[in-house]
Amino acid sequence: MDFSIISENLHYYFDGLLITVQLTGISLLLGLIFAIPLAVLRTSRNFILTMPIRFFVYVFRGTPLIVQMFIIYYGLGQFDFVKFGFGVFQEGFNPDNIGNQTFLWKYFFSEAYFCALFAFTLNTCAYTIEIIRGAIESTPFGEVEAAKSVGMSRTMMLRRIILPSSLRRAFPAYGNEVIFMLHGSALASVITLMDITGAAGIINARYYAPYEAYITAGVFYLCITFTIVWLFKKIEKRIYAHLAPYVDKTQKTAAVN
């Protein structure tokens, strides 16, 4: 075992750390932003409204993340209209002129980074919708009844009662999703991105030292996971303050006895 190769090449891991944190952070944030309204819509009784959301969730939870990433990264590149726009269907179109590339292809889908981000966002969004939907549906009926009895409108009830209450309940499950997403982001290395796992791949291939390379990657992931768990604990303590056992701060001395 020779960890000097790791210390000499630590910059690969720190560059990788940045990519990993970016990919996970941005995709989680975007996923959550989309997931909240979609989860609310998903609880609607209107079948036409819930159908597309059900389908989206079913597809993205029903296929492995790596397959989704491959379809987006390699699959889309197969179609000329993705690269050159719908002009390809007109006669006399000459795809050789690379300057004709669509904006979407040139600046978005041709970059591995955005492809990964896109796949991760859709994936986490689907899971988060389900987490939040479950929480909304398990809202104690008493809370809804109380809101109705004081004459709240549906939107006000949603904003003041249902969402705060259910997001709070969804929180621990969402913590799980955050960690899953972090570990899922290791797949980015498969499409040429140099995240932490990608860095380990380079070190392994260069020095033929898989143990040192991947154990270091593991330690990096553990550190991030630790930070996430710690952060979630902090937040949980705050948002579950009303559930904490009552401590009478005026009688400190008595508590000691």
Binding site: G77, K83, V190, T192
Partner: peptide, 18 residues
Amino acid sequence: IVRYGTQDEVFLDMKSGR
């Protein structure tokens, strides 16, 4: 320098114009 796991993937991305 874009590095791929296999040679096939290099060709695949060459073809898709990346």
